[in-house]
């Protein structure tokens, strides 16, 4: 499929775009069996878009992988299947069968156990089953303090372990893509993008994203200081809780019981950009899993989390 014709990007975005495309091509050229981790959020939508451009007029030479936890927003799953079909991409969906059998979930087991079993362990299983030696993902350095330290080509020891203190120096664009058997690489083509760059690019290139990113009237409840959208009836209401219809949108995508919405009227791309310009809280604010413990992201990454 031909890439969308752009209406002139800023030099800044053009530079980021060129860098992202180069990193994706490098991955395809250097690894035996790469995969694109498609989490359905805005960042992986940008990576997917860049991948299409990188190989045009050919097709993307690797499959997409989605780790479904069983608690994904229904809107996300619907969007995922529609996009994959439109693009004719090979989509692999994996859910941790052990976790499923044991009925692991965020409400019964807490966010930490749930994210570890259904997120991290599931990802490692899927990578091992597919025998993938490189996994492309949409993580950005401006998201979080441990990510700010990570390389573009980020080496994983056997067992998918990240060793933050022993990272390979990464000079110029001369990426060291060599790995031994059993080792893998995580690759982050949009490392140097900010949240604002991502939206700016999505707007300029008219990249489709999940509707949850835009404000609408949705059924939410207040819990632990967050606005949770009850996407199905697995979440029982506590004493005094009630469902209200409110104008909200989401800044990040994740499992619905763990992702806080915020009140917003931003229904268009322009309005979202305007809201971001004025925002005084960070993107991860709405995530109910990152603040579990100090340095939790680094710990999870060391264990193989994306």
């Amino acid at each position: 499929m031909q890439p969308v014709q752009t209406h002139s990007l800023s030099p800044h975005l053009r530079r980021l775009e060129a860098e992202g495309i180069a990193i994706i091509r490098e991955t395809a050229a250097s690894f035996r069996n790469p995969v694109l981790l498609y989490s359905i959020g805005k960042d992986s939508s940008v990576v997917l878009h860049l991948a299409m451009k990188a190989f045009a007029p050919g097709r993307i030479p690797f499959p997409l992988l989605h780790i479904a936890t069983g608690w994904d927003f229904r809107d996300m799953l619907e969007f995922r299947d529609r996009r994959a079909a439109e693009l004719g991409a090979r989509l692999i969906v994996h859910t941790n069968p052990d976790g499923l059998a044991r009925g692991i979930g965020p409400l019964t087991h807490g966010s930490q156990v749930h994210m570890d079993v259904m997120g991290t362990q599931a990802l490692k299983q899927a990578l091992d089953i597919g025998g993938y030696d490189a996994a492309l993902g949409g993580a950005r350095r401006d998201e979080e303090k441990a990510r700010a330290k990570e390389r573009v080509f980020s080496h994983r020891a056997p067992g998918h372990v990240w060793e933050p203190r022993g990272q390979r120096p990464e000079l110029w664009g001369l990426y060291n893509t060599r790995i031994a058997p059993g080792e893998t690489m995580r690759v982050f083509p949009i490392s140097n993008w900010t949240e604002f760059d991502v939206w700016d690019y999505i707007a300029a290139e008219q990249i489709p994203v999940v509707p949850l990113y835009f404000a609408a009237e949705r059924p939410v409840l207040r819990r632990g200081g967050a606005l949770i959208m009850r996407d199905d009836d697995r979440m029982p209401l506590n004493e005094g809780e009630q469902i209200e219809n409110m104008w909200v949108r989401f800044r990040t995508m994740g499992d619905w019981p763990l992702t806080g919405a915020h009140e917003s009227r931003a229904q268009t791309m322009e309005e979202v950009l305007e809201e971001l310009r004025l925002s005084r809280v960070s993107e991860r604010h709405g995530r109910l899993i990152d603040n579990d413990q100090e340095a939790s992201m680094e710990r999870k990454k060391r264990e193989g989390y994306f």
Binding site: E144, K145, R147, A148, K149, P164, R165, A295, E298
Partner: peptide
Amino acid sequence: LLVDGLEAER
């Protein structure tokens, strides 16, 4: 601490 993000650094 805004930039020293690794546990060992802190």
